[in-house]
Structure formats: C-alpha cells, structure tokens
Design a protein around this nucleic acid. Structure first.
Lengths: 251, 251
DNA sequence: CGCAAGCGCGTATGTCATACGCACAGATCT
DNA sequence: AGATCTGTGCGTATGACATACGCGCTTGCG
C-alpha cells in the first residue's frame, strides 16, 4: 500500500487532519479512538467552557486513564485543533442561484448558530483556518459569489470581514446570554453597570448613547435572544450594503 | 474621610479601576505598587506573549517574591483586567469637524496600532469593556458621530462592528507578521500551505480564489506590513460604505 | 507459534496559581 | 517615648495541570 505522499513535510496535526482515517493495525482492538476523544472533549467544552477541559477530566469522562489519551493525540493543542475541525459540522449548501446577498446571509446565520452552540471556538485565538472542517465553511461561503462580477481576488477578504463580524458579535452575545457572574458571564447587567460608571462630564458621547436607550430593550416582550439576533442581522445588512457598493463598482 | 460610595456593590476589580488611586496608608513605604506591576506585566506580554506571563516570571522581573504581587492584585484575572485598561493608552482626539468618515478611519487605524503593539489583548476573550481605559476609546470613537444624523441608539452598534473588524483583521495580521512556527505564528507561509492542501475537486471555489492570487503579493516591492495595512484600509472602507448607506436613510 | 507493533496506563516531574501565616516597618495613639 | 495596629514582603505548602518515560499486555501477521 503506497501512501499518498501529498502531505509530506507538513506538521503532524495537518497530516492527521487531511489523511484518510482508516487503516488496519496490529495491537488490541481500540477501546479508544480519535473520534470518541474529540467528541467527548467537545461535549465538555460545550457544557462547561474551555477552561473546564483538562486531559484528566476528559479521560475521566471516557473511563480511561489520562495518559491513554496521548496514544491518539500528541498534546492538548492538537486536541484543540481536532475539536475546531470537527465541531462546526457540515456547512449549508450555498449556490449562486438565490443571489449573493441571500447566500451570504444564510451562511452568516448558520455560522452564528455554530458559534452559539460551541462558544469555546471563539476563545481559541485561532489564526487562519487550515483544517478541512473550517475550510469547508470557507468554501461554502465563497460559493455565494458564484454569479457575481466580484473579482476572485476580492472574495476572500469580504468573507473574512463577515467572519470577523460574526465572531465578534457572537462572542458578546454568548457572554450576554450566559448566566451573569458565571464563567465567561458578564458582571450583572452590562447596561446597568455602564450607566453607573459612565459620568456625562467624563464620557459625554457615551453617556448620550446610553441615555438614548442603547441597552434598553425596545419592549419587554422581546427576549434577549431575539434582540441579539435582530441586532446581528442589522449589522450584517450594514456590511452587505458595503459589499453591494463594491459590487456596483465591479460590475 | 468619607469615601465615594458610587461604586459600592461592584466587583473589586471595577472598584479599584474606577477609584482614585492615591491615599496615605500605614505600613512601610511601598517598594511595589500597582503601576509598576502592571507595566512590567505588559512588557512581558508584549515581548513574549500572554503564555509567557506567569506570576513567578513577573515577580522575577520586578525583583520581588511571587507572593508579594498578591498584596496589590487579587489574582491573575484581575492583573489581566488592569493590563487591558492600561495598555491602550490615550485615544486620539476625534471631533466631528473633519466629518464622521475621517474620524472613524483615524480611530480605527489608531486602534489597530494599539493591537499591533499589544497583540496579547486580542487573546483575551474579553467581553464588553467596563474599564476606564477601554471606555475612553469607545468615547473617542463615538465622538466621530457628533455632526451626523445617525440616531444615538444606532451609534454603538456601528462602533462595535468596526471594533470586531479591527480585532479580527489585526489578529490575523499579527500572527502573519510573527516569525513562522514561533509562538502564535503561522505554520510557514499560509498561502503555500493552502495551495498544497486545497484540491479543486473538493474545494472548487477556494481553489479558484487561490488561483487568482489571493495570497500572492501584487509586487515583490511591497512589504507584508504595507500589504496588510492596505488590506485593512480596504475592508474598513467597505464597512464605512455600509455606514454611509445607513446615514443616507437617516438623514 | 513466536514476535513485535500498538495499546492502556502507573508513576514521576516540572510548572503554575494561590492559600496561609509569620515577621517586620512605621504611622497613629496614649 | 512607648504601645498599638495596619499594611507589607515573602517563605512554605497545596493542589491542578500537562506530559515524559517505560512496563506489561494484546493480537494480527509471518
């Protein structure tokens, strides 16, 4: 069996990520395997945050000894890389048929859902994505530009701009929705805290926007979730307006 | 001496951050103080990254014992909060005279410089800002809207949108400019890695944009710094185009 | 049937944040 | 001046954590 040598010289993480997983081995039938480990790790991080994910606790959950994990994962950083690649799952199918704006909107909302389900992804100061899981999302997003006149060179920057916004906005949303004071939660009601600390003489512009009801819900009937979602879509439209201007220049 | 009771009931961090620092005390003249500690901590984080900042190493640099630090800082999280508040320094003076677009542009570029100088700020999964240092920047940014018709309620979301973009873009820029393979650095040349891993059959849209030279410098004469800066300003203009549309609706 | 590859895991090491309490300095009070 | 009390610097100890190393076992292959 000649192995695919396309991935020579790459860091071990990338090799494991991009290679076909299955091959028959010696040794005992695996009680443990990479999928089980990564899945359990994601469950812990989802439930209790990234800080609660230790190799010891992970082993505990899997009913094995701590050091057994290291047969399948070189170190914790590698584990995190695997988690990042697996957690987002399959991206939505985007085609150019519905128009670029609808495609990017659906893509953004789907990605926001991923981040809300796995907020720990946002804590990982991940640089640019190199794993198949995340690149599949990039691929899906790029397909929205299919029918447009936007030059290919300018497409990824636009998608990255969206990505930055989605990550930033969702990070704050996730912190806001978490129980106050808890891990990653805000210290009580953010608007109330600001209203106490911000004095009009020192921060006039800030005081003005607070006074105008920036953190006051438009109606008590609107849940924080809905409010944050509406706020997200509004900012998204702002960005897409800018993209529309760019497209106007291009075509 | 009656202390200002405006800050009762707030978390200790906020109280220390917002109170006047000076008051005469008992005990020996302080060899150590909060400013010295935070300044040294920022220096370590600037030079070697957040991971290299341990209480032991910080004490070492200050020529004191590890536990001495805890007389001035409740714990490491509090230290990080102080660092976040002090590191950005004074924001630029923005007034509405030059127009909102120029004001926001200058603000964004100045903030980008802060993040390039202190990349560790981006690693701190900080939620919304509550310290005077960061709020001073928010205040400065909001002043750019002074002469516009944008309703006060809609100003902070726009500023947050800019903030997300600045943070995201600069985080990748900082990682790109770091020595490859080092702490926080990319695994070699990102474009080259992607070109090897991305097969057109599996990632056609991604392959197309790579083929179109997304990661190829327009000219060898352009340094990576300049290229990233130009890319930053381009994305910024995109966002501000969207804000202009919004302003068109408002006024 | 032997053998070695691959596996699970016990033990040990080094790093880290931090609780606790001692001893001392010096300002305040008598 | 002397007693007192508050705040400081710090030595020691603890417990969490990632992880190096090496032992014994299992099992598919020759």
């Amino acid at each position: 069996m000649v192995s695919d040598d396309t991935h020579d010289g790459l860091p071990r993480v990338l090799r494991v990520l991009w290679e076909e997983p299955a091959r028959p081995r010696r040794g005992p039938a695996n009680a443990l395997n990479l999928d089980r480990i990564v899945t359990a790790a994601i469950e812990i991080a989802d439930a209790d945050g990234l800080a609660a994910l230790s190799m010891a606790r992970l082993a505990d959950r899997l009913g094995c000894a701590t050091m057994s994990l290291y047969r399948h994962v070189a170190n914790k950083d590698e584990l995190l890389a695997f988690m990042m690649s697996m957690a987002p799952g399959r991206p939505p199918e985007i085609d150019a048929a519905g128009g670029w704006r609808d495609g990017l909107t659906r893509w953004s909302i789907a990605l926001r859902k991923v981040y809300l389900r796995h907020p720990w992804i946002l804590e990982i100061t991940g640089v640019a994505p190199v794993d198949p899981g995340q690149l599949a999302w990039v691929e899906a997003g790029l397909r929205a530009f299919g029918g447009t006149a936007l030059p290919p060179r300018e497409r990824l920057p636009v998608l990255m701009l969206l990505l930055h916004y989605i990550r930033g906005h969702t990070q704050i949303a996730a912190a806001t929705l978490r129980p106050a004071g808890g891990p990653g939660g805000l210290p009580g009601d953010y608007g109330a805290i600001l209203a106490r600390l911000v004095r009009p003489d020192r921060f006039p512009a800030l005081a003005e926007v607070l006074q105008a009801g920036t953190f006051t819900a438009p109606s008590p009937a609107v849940s924080p979730q809905e409010e944050l979602r509406a706020d997200f879509v509004q900012g998204l439209d702002r960005i897409l307006d800018g993209v529309a201007v760019q497209l106007g220049h291009a075509g």
